[in-house]
Amino acid sequence: MDTPYQNHIDKDEFNYVYEPAEDSFLLIDALEKEIDFLRKKNPLLCLEVGSGSGVVITAFAMAFPHCLCFCTDINHRACLMSQSTASHNKVFLECVNMNLVTCFVDKKFDVLIFNPPYVETESNDCLSNGIVASWAGGIKGREITDKLLDMVPKILTDDGIFYLLLIKENIPEEVKEIMLQKGFQANLVLERKVKNEHQIVIKFYR
């Protein structure tokens, strides 16, 4: 999987939108590891929630030219950046300024990708829709993730796949248990220790 061209982005914009970092690249590497599996699935519609700079969904769109890619972000500036990253890399991307997936009809997406705000913070910190929303995860760094988990069964097609990035502090075992209750199996795709963070990417499927 190629890393999208990003030099078009004005660096000052990263005061408002999360700048691609190790977690973003781990997610791209995880999707690359899944490429043969995903090619066999031949997904039609893919959605990234909280796309920020748009680097992950653009990388996906470049690798899967026959899949239509969508993204949402609660931050309007992130939506604009995702859109421009996609167009600079000449891929199709539809972007909607939305809270998670609350305004999509059910059972359309074959692939769902989420790099959530995972940092442990006070509960109130995760109510913003600016740059803070890109990292502040509330209690256990899981408040936003848990909200999305509840929506996953409805947003995915019956054989849809969900890729989620977490850190150890988010207690991935608990997340797996929550998803198991909803009928999803879990596989670890990739993990990496970066500075003081242990990041992992999990794949959920029915």
Partner: peptide, 9 residues
Amino acid sequence: TKGIPNMLL
């Protein structure tokens, strides 16, 4: 605006 629907409450 600029092709992006704003569905935020």
